[in-house]
Amino acid sequence: MKITRRDLLKMGIKAAAVASMPLTIEILTPEQVKAEIEKSDVRWGFLVDTYKCVGCGFCVKACKKENEVPYDAPVTRTWVERYVITKDGRVLADSPNGARDGFNDNRIRGEEVPENEISKAFFVPKLCNHCENPPCVQVCPVGATYSTADGVVLVDRSWCIGCGYCIMACPYGVRFFHPEHKVAEKCTFCYHRIVKGMKTACVQACPFGARQIGNLKDPNDPITKIITTQRVGVLRDEYGTKPQVYYLGLDDNVK
């Protein structure tokens, strides 16, 4: 049999292809997959220091730009709320345009509260709580929203059918339909940034350090230290969602 140069080349390519195939194919059982996922030594968590927040709205601006949420649409992945509690016990709260442009008017929905009548006033930044037991993931009929191994709740834009059940199921009102992609949208803790060792856009934009992100599984992480040694609170724990955004100085009046 005569072997031409062409044949030799063909055989060479075939041999290379065979050699490059993995020698063994490992099939994982569901238990093994679960173990593999839980192996992660990272659990992203968030800390909001409400004493430091001044309501400038830089975080909201930065988030909208970083994550391409249409700037003028009345929806946002993160927002800041203002609370004014009067001496006679009334609770006034607002978040004009999600505080994208900050709070530059003393009036709350047209009402001016005289300074001597205010008993306390503060700002509260809000974002997805990346719950340990997320109701949004539970109710998604197609599994398009899911928790990652490191504890972040994400949405698969290519698989979401846009039924809105997750939006209904979230007790924190953090979800909405993206005006352009027409699928469920939410805060991702800037997953594309944090996995590369960067901070989230809102954390980076905050001039006062009111927002911090860190790894809750690392005892030496600055935010883990604060959460484990100081008095912190979470929002709406009565729903059993186990939220992972912790607040310093959380007030009883916060909705």
Partner: peptide, 15 residues
Amino acid sequence: LQQPLRGIQVFFTPH
């Protein structure tokens, strides 16, 4: 549905 053409996915990947 916001994505009516994907409605069929409920049968493909029921959660």
